[in-house]
Amino acid sequence: MTTDTGHPLPTRYDPRQAAMLAVFGMSCLAFIDNFVPVIARDIGLWQFHAARSAMILAGLLPLAVLMGWRLRPRSWRAVAWRSFCIASAMMLYFGATATMPVSQVAAGLLSSPIFVVLISWGFYGAEIGKWRWLAVTLGFAGVLLVLRPSGDTLSVLNVVPLFAGLLYALGAVATRRYCADENEAVLVAGFFGTSGLFGVVGLLVLAGTVTDPAIDGFFGTGLQTWTSDALFWTFWQAVVSVIGIGSLFRAYLLAEASHVAVFEYAFIVAAAFWGYMLWGQVPDAFALLGMAFIIAAGVVIIKRSGAA
């Protein structure tokens, strides 16, 4: 996509509100994602995304008409590009979990703030001061302590999660620089529309094949008969996800991508909290130390908001 790198940044700027929205959004996603294993017992990734996106768009479009929200993008190319990047990142993330340890995949995806800083600095000349560099580095170190990716020999599969992190970072930067004049409804519709399209394509590719979630996994399973559990949790995934993702998208419209991206690490803290509350999972000492690093990174960003 051809873009104008000289496009001025918008006047709306509230880094503290952006931080709160990002933490809230990631906490919502962490809560509802705890129930993905329940869904994965009965259906596959593509069916899940196609159905969830259909549910969200079926509710969003009438609501947009009722509330008078604009759903026509001001820049089709910009919205299409950032939707493609973020939706592709999530597909790569979930796809890689079919053949790699989740810790490695998550560590790769959560490398996105590092890419955000590099993209903002290298391509747009953003002034990223030492405190923000320190916060990003500290946050990533915390992720490594929490997830502790293994030291297996590097292969193509090891690189897939890092590509997910790069794509997610590209989408995050595009949100701020090229979609700043878009409202949240446009961004949410674009993301879920693209995710739904990917889901439909995946189902078409797998059409005519006999698949079983227990054998083929979340990634390789085609269309399955709906169960009450899968339908129930897919519906609530749709409801809570649109709240969480809408909050995160709003955050990226209120502050620099390199600022907001650090607070996406709140997902780790929230996931640990909900894992304990829902399933009694207790983080070990390394995980707790990593969470402390993540929290410290967030505090540095808040204290230094407005500073280079």
Rank of each mutant, 00 (worst) to 15 (best):
G142L: 01
L145V: 05
L167G: 02
W131I: 07
R132N: 02
G171Y: 10
S103P: 00
S112D: 05
S150M: 15
A174D: 03
P101F: 14
C179L: 00
S103Y: 12
L109A: 05
L154R: 01
P101D: 14
L144H: 08
A174I: 00
R148H: 13
L138P: 03
R177L: 04
L166G: 06
L138C: 00
L167W: 00
D152A: 15
T137R: 00
W133H: 11
A180I: 12
E182S: 04
V156R: 10
E127C: 02
R177W: 04
R132D: 02
L134A: 14
L154E: 04
V159G: 06
A107C: 10
V160I: 15
P101G: 14
F115C: 10
L157E: 13
V143D: 11
A107Y: 07
L157C: 08
R176S: 03
G125K: 07
L144D: 01
A126M: 03
R148N: 13
C179V: 03
Y168P: 08
L162A: 06
R132C: 01
L166R: 05
L118C: 09
A164Q: 07
S155A: 08
A107P: 07
A141I: 11
L110V: 10
V136A: 00
P149H: 13
A135E: 09
F163E: 10
